[in-house]
Nucleic acid binder design. Sequence first.
DNA 1: CCCAGTCTTTACAACGTTGGAACAACGATG
DNA 2: CATCGTTGTTCCAACGTTGTAAAGACTGGG
Lengths: 328, 328
Amino acid sequence: MATLKDVARLAGVSVKTVSNVVNGYSFVKPDNRRRVEEALEATGYRPNLGARNLRRGRTGFIALVLPELSIPYFAELAGLVIAAAQDHEWNVLIEQTFGTLAGERSALASLGPHLVDAAILSPEALQVDDFQLPVPAVLLGEHAVDVPISRVGIDNVAAAQAAVRHLISLGHQRIAAIGAHPHRGTAALRLEGYRRALAEASLPFVDELVVPALNYHRADGAAAMRSLLDLRTPPDAVFCFNDLLAIGAMRAAGERFVRVPQDLAVVGFDNNEESVYSSPSLTSVAPDKAAIAQAAVDLLHRRVESGDALENVETPFSLQVRESTVTR
Amino acid sequence: MATLKDVARLAGVSVKTVSNVVNGYSFVKPDNRRRVEEALEATGYRPNLGARNLRRGRTGFIALVLPELSIPYFAELAGLVIAAAQDHEWNVLIEQTFGTLAGERSALASLGPHLVDAAILSPEALQVDDFQLPVPAVLLGEHAVDVPISRVGIDNVAAAQAAVRHLISLGHQRIAAIGAHPHRGTAALRLEGYRRALAEASLPFVDELVVPALNYHRADGAAAMRSLLDLRTPPDAVFCFNDLLAIGAMRAAGERFVRVPQDLAVVGFDNNEESVYSSPSLTSVAPDKAAIAQAAVDLLHRRVESGDALENVETPFSLQVRESTVTR
DNA sequence: CCCAGTCTTTACAACGTTGGAACAACGATG
DNA sequence: CATCGTTGTTCCAACGTTGTAAAGACTGGG
C-alpha cells in the first residue's frame, strides 16, 4: 500500500508537499501539483486514517449505542445516522445493549476517547450517575432532566396526547395503554400524554387499562393485549407505546376474533415500515427519523468542532392514520 | 487521557515495561508488575487503539457491506455479526449500498486496508471484475462462482426447492414465483430451486407465473402480486424470494379480498421476526442467521490470523410452516 | 544590485504504541 | 574467578501523518 513517502519519491518532492496537495493547501506550484497528482494517481494512494487521526487527535468514528438492531425503529434510525454521518466524514460504530443496564454500562465503558469522537445514545435503563462520558454525546428520545447531555427527539407527551386524542375523536371511551415501564423515561412521558388526553376529554384514568411491558417486542404486546381482553370489560381502543407492541396486540386480538378496528382500534408509535403493510395497516405516531438522525449528527459535529454548548433539539412528528383506527 | 508515558512515570519504570505488563508479557518482576498495575489503576489508562493499530498494522475493524439496514433481514444479520465480532475484539463498521452498483462500488472503494482488517459483503449488483479487494473478504449468500473469495450461506437451490415442494405437497398446482432478477445470484438460484421442484412433480414451468422484482421491498411484492391477480388464471400459491415481498403480496391479496391461505398460499424466505406476527403468519424458509454471522466472522478471523485458504461454508436452513400455507 | 516581501518547499518533531537490540543483574557452571 | 545463560529492563526506531518553523526561490522597488 502506497504511503505519502512513496508518492513523494515518485513525484520528486518532499513528503510534506504531497501532504499539502492531498489536503488542498493552496500554495503549491502548478507544476508540482500536477506531478504530485499524477503520482497519486499512479500509486493509488489512500491516506492511512489511523495515522492521520493519531496525528490529528481524532478517530473519525462516532458510536451509536442502541438496544438492538433487530428492532425496526433502531435499524431504520441506524441507517439514517450512518447516512448523516457520511456528510461529516464520520464512520459509525454500532453497539447493542439489549436494553439491559449491564449492556449499556459495558457499551459506555468501551467508549474510550481513542475509539470515537462522539456518541449517540439511546439508553433505556441508565441512571443519572452513569453519565460520566469521556466524549461529547447526545441522547435520543429520552429526556433525562438532570443530565448535562444534549438531547434530540420529539415531544413525547404531545405526540402521545395526539394519538389518544385521535382515538377519542373517533368516539372511543375505554382506551387502554400498553407499554408502561418503571424506569423508561419515554414510557413515563407517553403515559403522561395519554393521561392528559383522557383528562381534557373528562374520561376517567382507569388503572387496569394501563398495562406495563418490560420489553417492547411483538410478544410483549401480544401478552399485554391478552390480559386486556381477559378483563371483565375489555377496552374498545388501545394506544401502544411502539409499533411492535401494537403489531403484537393486533395479532392477539385476531387470535380471539376481535376485529380491528371495528371492535378494537389500535394506535402505535414509531411508524415502522412494517406498519404500512400489516393487515390491517397500523395508525401510528410518526417521528421524523431522518430529522432526528441529522440533528443528532450535526449537533455532535458542532460540539466537536467548535465546542458548542449543550442543546435540546425538538424534532417534528405527525400522526399517520391508517386502517387500525378507521375503516376504509 | 493517560498514556503509557504517564503510567511509566508514576510507576517509576520505562514505557516499554508498562507496555509489557499491558500486553501480558511474562518476564516482569512481581514487584514492578504490582507497581505498574497500581499505576494503571490510578490513571485509568486505556490504550490508544489508533496508535496501537498503526504500530501493529491492524485496525481492529471489519466492514459489513449490505444493501440497507431498514431491511429486517440485514438488520438482524448485522446485530448477529456485531455480536460475533466481539469475540475477536473486532468492531463492526456498517456500509449501506442501497443495492446499487454505484453504492457497492463506493463502499468497496472506501474499504482501504487502513480502515478495516476484513470485510463481509452482501452484494447484489457487483460484477466479477469489481472484486479487487484490498482486504480478506467473505461473501454472504451469493455464490459468485468465478471469484476467489470465501463464501458463507445456505444452499439456495435446495431451500427454494423445499419451499415449493411444501406448496406442492399441499396440492397446489399453479404456483407463482416473485423475485426473479436479472443480475442477482441468489435470485437465479432460488428460481432454479423453484424450477426443480416443479419438474420433479411434473408441473409445467409457466413463464407468466414468474414475476421479476427489481427491489425486494414490500411495495415490490404488492405490485408483483397485483399483476399476478390480474392474470386470466391467477395462481393458487406463490413463492416469494424474501419475506418482504411475501408481506407485500399478502397485503395486495387482502386488498382484492383473496384469502390467504384458502385462495392463495404464500411462502416467504428469510424468516423475519415480522413474519411470525403478521396476519396470517407467514410460512418461510429460515436460514440460520446466527450460524451465518458466526461462520463469516470466524472464517475471516482465521484468514487474517493465519492466512487460511478460501472456504465455502454451507449453513443449515429449515422451513417454518405457518398460517399462510396451512389453516390452523 | 540589494533588500523586503511574498510565495513555495522542506526538515524536523510529534501523536502513542510496540518490536528488537542492547544492556544490566544475577546465580550457576567450569 | 571468568564465563555463561537466564531473566528483566531500557533505549531506539518505526508505523504514516501533519503542524511548525525555518529555509529557499522569486518578484518588484529602490
